[in-house]
Design a protein around this nucleic acid. Structure first.
Lengths: 205, 205, 205, 205
DNA sequence: CATGAATGAGTGTTCATTCAT
DNA sequence: GATGAATGAACACTCATTCAT
């Protein structure tokens, strides 16, 4: 019977990841020293290294956690049978996340992971999955709708899915660069875009 | 009379910036050492430091050059009086740039500058101007068209401009993460989106 | 009345020393971490530190045990009144030890202790006694034989003893560096050398 | 035309190796920190690492230099056609080296390399060659002499060679552990042993 | 001017040891 | 007693930058 429960291990890992995320958001992936993380976490170097074997692993773990969270949220939204409902749900989720001040740190780190992925194989595969999984889900959704005549026939579902993802990624960037950027007007544009995609009775109202 | 002409100075600067860009694209802003740049440029440490006073300045200069190039291209396109023509010109420019294999390095470095901007004031202001100037230009264009009834009245020109920029930024990311991503289908979606924005006789054909 | 018997304490100490010896032989005195020893022993850090107060003490204890074992074996052999018998007994003991696969670990660690002794006073005194005690014993033996005319008069008993010890140490090294080294031919040479030392009727047969 | 000559590079390497050797002899291979070597050499960390890429490489280079020196000395001695002359030459060389106070450091480090070789493949191959090359040379010498009837027929030349090497290695150890050990009496024993090996008229005087 | 050897503060990481549970 | 998570000083090594030649 272990004296230290799995719950304790999880708590420590979370504590460390939270500290690392805060530091990375504040000073950047590379300017953050392990010393920074150590202080922020209120632990010792040894303690941190007994949970994560390197700074890179810490970075990867943050990317992983981020990926997992997004994935489950997206998968949830995608379960809606109705295209419009699913898209609305996804839109709701993303805009809610974008509004969330607590998520700000996470988004700032996320952007750094996007850049880091360009020169880090493991992060690249993580980031790719973060694009590919939602893209496939969205594309499947749109393809079904397209067959039923609810989506313009001249557009590729896959490209549409990519465009929606690009829209969100691009907005995450703009918001990170400028806190004063307004979410609502942008949301109206996205909703209009979604409506423009959808045809038929759905589109009438 | 300077022994070293301005032309020579410019050539050296360009040589160094090209070398740095190649290194940054290959190994990342932070993993690239000055030694890497020195070797790639085929110069000495001293030579490089006589043109740029620090690695940061090198990075900033690359960002600046990138900004300047984009700005002039965009300004050019924006000169068209006709909204549709202007948008088509911009779309043409961006997709041409995206297709350009020689620009691949530049885009990879660009993404890293986006991330770096989050923790580097000078880069942040550069990146912001890279968003704000095109945004203002686009927004002005769309506002004019909107007054003339050629753009849906329910959408804010500024938000529309942001969305178009987000779309491009997002696609730059996807393309950088996955070389196999197809440009054409995406372009069709963007064109459809642009058309959806534009109303009236312009939209008929 | 102690709850923990001396027998139990001894067993634990032996268990720890065996584990440490195995690790030291495998990875070297310095590359072996206490964690390695802890795992090999199947105990906890705390348990080990309650028997040995430091890694250095562990090393010293291994040296001590090694010294004690050799000393008693040599002392036994030296009890033979007859020089030839004593030398044969010693030769037998050393070559038997050298043949013993189980002793291989011990010899590997022993060599490391020889090196360590150069910078560790306590080990140095241990190693010195490991040379001096056999040397004095051998020298006394040879001196007696010399007085009886059984050993060449022109050689110093003490230097002869040193040479015999050097011969064995040197061979321990060669064997440790190369497992394929043959013992028998070397033994023949040592026996010839011993015979060359001994004169008179002893040497006749 | 390089501003820095090969001679300068060699001088720096020697300077660093000398400093490292001094430190290693004084405090041991493992207790010596790179900081120690840096101070002893009177250089900076960076300077040292531009000549040797790691502490291990420094250690190996010292081993290599030691090996090279011994090898050439031994090869020289072995050139004598006459067995007795060659053996005397070798004996002279080794005892001269053993007497040399300046070589004391080198011998102390050499012993540590012997131990290190047990857990370091590269050092092992170096140390092995340090045994095998002299052994083969000696064995060839003895084999020739044996065929001419000048060496006892019942002893294997190779084992004899090993024994001579063992004798020297063993004495290096004893001398390192105890500075007061006398060289002369030991030398008399070795000479006697060499004579015992050699037969015929050579052996008469 | 140009060079590139030299600098040295700073980095990520390790590991012998401790001590709260 | 026994445990093993936690400590933190110490380590090998890097790299942006300088400056004597």
């Amino acid at each position: 019977m272990p004296k230290v429960t799995q719950a304790h291990v999880d708590a420590r890992r979370t504590q460390i990841l939270d500290a690392a995320r805060a530091c990375f958001a504040r000073r950047g992936l590379h300017s953050t020293t392990m010393q920074d993380v150590i202080q922020e976490a209120g632990l010792s170097a040894g303690a941190i290294y007994s949970y994560f074997s390197s700074k890179d692993e810490l970075i990867e773990a943050i990317g992983s956690a981020r990926h997992a969270r997004e994935q489950s949220a997206i998968a949830n939204a995608g379960r809606k049978a109705d295209v419009r409902q699913a898209l609305e749900e996804l839109s709701r989720y993303f805009f809610a996340a974008l509004q969330d001040k607590n998520e700000r740190e996470g988004r700032r780190v996320g952007i750094q992971l996007w850049a880091e992925a360009l020169t880090n194989e493991r992060l690249l595969s993580l980031v790719r999955r973060g694009v590919d999984e939602p893209r496939k889900m969205l594309a499947a959704l749109l393809r079904t709708a397209q067959r039923a005549g609810h989506v313009r026939a001249d557009l590729q579902p896959d490209a549409l899915a990519r465009a929606l993802i690009a829209l969100f990624h691009g907005f995450v960037l703009q918001q990170a660069w400028d806190k004063s950027v307004q979410l609502e007007p942008f949301r109206a544009v996205v909703d209009a875009a979604l409506n423009a995609i959808l045809l038929g009775p759905l589109n009438e109202r």
